[in-house]
């Protein structure tokens, strides 16, 4: 469930990348683990810079990490 209509597939992508931990991802994009938890739960929409950094870690286009479905 997302707060701003922004959905993400970070959990799935972490799983596909040798079950990368939240801490490992946080360290690579230089944020706290709590921020990764909040993004995964849809409680925080990251900045464009952070979104690109996360996509780069998974070596995938941004739209495969985040998607936008406006709330009706």
């Amino acid at each position: 469930m997302s707060k701003h209509g922004i959905h993400n597939h970070i959990r799935k992508l972490r799983f596909e990348h040798d079950e990368m931990t939240q801490q490992q991802l946080a360290d690579q994009v230089k944020v706290t683990r709590q921020t990764i938890v909040a993004i995964e739960k849809g409680k925080y929409s990251p900045s464009l810079e952070l979104a690109f950094k996360i996509a780069k870690v998974f070596n995938t286009p941004l739209e495969q990490v985040f998607s936008y479905e406006p709330e009706l």
Binding site: K30, V31, T32, R33, Q34, T35, A38, P46
Partner: peptide, 9 residues
Amino acid sequence: MAGFEDERD
């Protein structure tokens, strides 16, 4: 504890 503040903090 993280020794820095990220954008969310």
